[in-house]
Structure formats: structure tokens, C-alpha cells
Simulated scan of single mutants.
Amino acid sequence: MADDKSGREKQARDAERRQRERDIVAELERGDETEPPVDPAELDDLEAALDAVEFPATGSDVVAAAGDRTLTDGDERYAVEELVPDTDEEWFGSVAAVRVRVRRPRIATAMKRIAEATESLPNAELGASQREAYERTLRELKAIEEDDEDEGVRVISDWIVERIREKERLPGSREVRRQAAKFCRSNGYTVRNDEWLGV
């Protein structure tokens, strides 16, 4: 890279982007874990399989390189292809971003279904902020201790997919949070107004 003003600016932007990715990974690792941790050796194996992938990479690139790798979550085993959408619409900026995505297999599976349903929409895409809001809603549902079967995660991800198919649009994050709060209250789970689901 040339040692001129534009070269230095690009290096600074790249360094900033890498730092943001590291910060996101660190924050997610420090966050409340709603699922048992995936075995670190399995995550290391996944990272090794992704060494040949050039990032940023699509979901299809990740699945092609490591789709057959498996991760264990409690008593369940998931292939990476069950957790990452096999699409060119889904992008990962780094191996760390893939690692973060698959660390919560049940939520990753639900988000994969949503991303794949979104592909059927002609003029819509699942943007980063909307994806983050959906994921946070699913994490809040997963955190309900009494709901060991993850019924809330299944019900709300099914509801989102149905809305996409019936209405041919992505439901807004507030709409999803309201539906999640409705599910919680109808099943006897308390949702306070100052919580994420308390809309």
C-alpha cells in the first residue's frame, strides 16, 4: 500500500473496523450467556476450517468451507450448515464474526430460518440493526429460566417467518418485541416495562 494520505486513511479505517469487530466479540463473550457454551475445541476446529476463506465472506462461502463441522450444545449436535444461512446475502467480516454467530446454536438456527425466508422477499434485506434486534429478542426469550424447551424462541421465529411469507415484508423490531412480550405474558412469564421486551 502506498505511503500517502489515502493509504494511511485506509489503514486507519481498516484498523478501526478490526477494533470494532474485536469489541463486538468481547462484548458478546462477556454478555449474559443464555445457552451452555460450545466446546472451545470445536470452535477452534471451525476456525481452522475457515483459514482458507477470504473475509469478508458470504454465508455460502462459510457453509462451503465448514458446513460439515459439528458443534455440541448440551446434548444436541449441530452442523455449521444448520447454523449459517447458505446464501450470498449474509456476510461475515471475519472468522470471529462466524464464531460469535455459532456460539448460540439455538438462536443461530432460528436466525438462519429468518434469513432464508427473507431471501424470498423481492425488495427487502435483513439489515444489521434489524438482525441485531431480532437476535436480542430471541436471546431475551432464551433467558427465561422456566422455559427450558426454548418454546419462546421457536414460537417467535415461526411467527417472524410466517409474517414474511404472509405479508411479504419483514416485521419491525418493535412488532417482534410486542409479539414476544405477548407470548411471555400469555404463558405466565413476567415482563417489566423497563425491559427489552416491555414495549
Rank of each mutant, 00 (worst) to 15 (best):
T72W: 03
R177W: 04
V25P: 00
I160H: 13
T72N: 01
V95M: 03
W196N: 05
V84D: 09
L28D: 08
W159R: 10
A48R: 15
E82S: 06
V199Y: 15
A180V: 06
R18S: 05
Y78D: 05
P36N: 10
E82N: 07
D32C: 02
E54F: 02
G59D: 07
K167Y: 05
K167C: 03
E35A: 06
A65L: 09
L28Q: 13
R20G: 01
Y78Q: 06
A49L: 13
R131T: 06
T190S: 14
D147Y: 11
R178G: 08
N187Q: 09
Y189P: 02
R20C: 00
G93S: 13
N187T: 14
V191T: 09
V100Q: 15
Q11M: 10
D86K: 11
S157P: 03
F55P: 07
I156A: 00
R106D: 04
R17S: 09
V102M: 08
P171Y: 11
V161I: 01
E9R: 14
I24T: 11
R104A: 13
Q11K: 11
A66C: 04
K182G: 03
E47W: 02
I164L: 08
R185K: 14
G172R: 12
L46M: 14
E116S: 08
V25Y: 14
D158E: 13
R169A: 14
T72S: 12
R174C: 02
Y189L: 08
R77N: 11
R104D: 11
P105D: 03
P36Q: 11
G74W: 15
R20K: 13
L28H: 10
P40E: 05
D4V: 12
A117V: 03
S120Y: 01
A124C: 01
K10V: 06
E166W: 00
R17C: 03
V63H: 01
R177H: 01
A41T: 10
R69F: 00
V176Q: 01
W91R: 12
D44V: 14
N187R: 13
E29G: 07
R99E: 10
R139A: 11
E54C: 01
R77W: 05
W196Q: 06
D68N: 11
R17T: 08
A181Y: 01
I114C: 04
F183Q: 06
G198D: 12
E81P: 00
R22A: 11
T70Q: 15
V53P: 07
L170V: 03
D4I: 13
G188K: 09
L141N: 01
E195L: 00
L83E: 07
D88W: 03
A57H: 07
T34Q: 08
E132F: 05
F183I: 10
T72M: 02
A41G: 04
P56K: 09
G188M: 10
V84S: 08
Q11L: 11
W159T: 10
A49P: 03
E76M: 06
D158L: 00
D147R: 06
R106I: 01
E166K: 06
S129Y: 13
E132H: 09
D4K: 05
L138I: 02
E9P: 00
V84M: 07
G74K: 12
M1G: 15
E175V: 01
K182Q: 09
L71P: 02
S173I: 07
Y189R: 09
E16R: 13
D75Q: 05
R178S: 12
V199T: 13
D147H: 07
